[in-house]
């Protein structure tokens, strides 16, 4: 277990190094931050001076070395727009985004397993066909269209749900503003979570169904039937446990991807999260903020993948984590 963790930490450091290099290197191609920083009235000579002062004219490697040295001390630069440390600006927005992802993940887990299993057990039933049909639609329609459709139907026409923002939040653990503990906060979560889940949910239903159908054809499931076990035990223990192994692997990666998808959802719902912030940062050529965002999202990917590997090792007895007995 310890050896496994050490191995993963070393891997994570390498991955983070590559991510930082790539995300830092794009900053030269994002346009001129000076144009946003200073007004029209500043002369070219003064701009040049300012660039020198900020180190923007140094060679790339010198700039990166400076950035890396600071980054190791937890300083990812200062946002040009907010005039605050970029990491702090992003971490302030992190709870909003993570709650959005958490809500969507809950929807996906609660719905995809029963629907996927049912449509694998009864592939020819009307309900299964309907699920499969809707899942194709769900995969095909882009998130922003789903989001706008939801707003139109539930906020404008029916007036049941708020259309933007996080609503009322409460502070938990001192720093985390959560929308999960007030009725208003929960109401604000519903539509964004549904639209964020709308792409991944059909994918998961289809994945679980396909895996489950394959497992149901296996010899060990036939043997379980020949043992006279109840269908419930066969479907939900023998088959489901084997079905979930590949689903866990794919699912973990997809949760990471969902953090990236929030950019669209947050924009449509004016959700004050990281994704929304990132899009604003791009518009303002706020390079330190962009770089910091990419690094934070990269770190989230690395952490979720490590967790997924750990869980997979615990669920699948044929995988031995180094040192696990």
């Amino acid at each position: 277990m310890i050896a496994f963790l050490i191995k993963r930490v070393v891997q994570a450091i390498i991955v983070m190094f590559v991510i930082s290099l790539v995300s830092f290197s794009i900053q030269d191609n994002l346009g001129d931050p000076l144009r946003e920083l200073v007004g029209q009235s500043v002369s070219e000579a003064e701009r040049q001076e300012l660039r020198d002062e900020m180190g923007l004219n140094d060679p790339f490697l010198v700039q990166y070395a400076r950035f890396a040295k600071n980054a190791l001390q937890g300083d990812l630069g200062t946002s040009y727009f907010f005039k605050e440390p970029a990491l702090e600006v992003i971490l302030k927005k992190l709870p909003a985004t993570l709650e959005l992802v958490l809500g969507a993940t809950l929807i996906i887990m609660l719905l995809s397993v029963p629907l996927g299993v049912y449509s694998a057990i009864k592939p020819y039933s009307l309900f299964s066909r309907a699920v499969m049909g809707f899942s194709i639609i769900g995969i095909s329609v882009p998130v922003f269209l789903t989001a706008i459709g939801l707003i139109y139907l539930f906020s404008i026409e029916l007036g049941w749900m708020p259309s933007f923002g996080r609503g009322e939040t409460t502070q938990i653990l001192g720093f985390w503003g959560s929308g999960f503990f007030t009725a208003d906060g929960l109401a604000h979560l519903v539509l964004p979570c549904i639209s964020l889940a709308s792409i991944m949910l059909p994918l998961f239903i289809r994945l679980i169904r396909a895996e489950m159908m394959e497992v149901l054809q296996s010899e060990y499931v036939k043997f379980a039937w020949a043992k006279g076990l109840s269908p419930r035990r066969i479907y939900f223990l023998h088959a489901l446990k084997n079905t979930m192994l590949p689903v866990i692997t794919v699912g973990g990666v997809q949760i990471g991807t969902m953090v990236a998808y929030t950019i669209l959802t947050e924009t449509v719902f004016q959700w004050p999260g990281m994704g929304f912030l990132f899009l604003e940062a791009v518009n303002r050529v706020d390079t330190p903020l962009i770089v910091a965002y990419l690094i934070v999202v990269g770190a989230i990917f690395v952490v979720t993948n490590t967790l997924v590997d750990l869980i997979y090792g615990l669920v699948n007895p044929t995988v031995k984590l180094a040192g696990k007995k």
């Binding site: 060990y220 039937w225 020949a226 043992k227 006279g228 446990k241 084997n242 044929t318």
Partner: peptide, 21 residues
Amino acid sequence: IRGNRISMIFQDPMMTLNPVL
């Protein structure tokens, strides 16, 4: 009756037992 009065032994023992139990 299955597994109780009449039971069955399959061909490939590598595939007959559930790998995760």
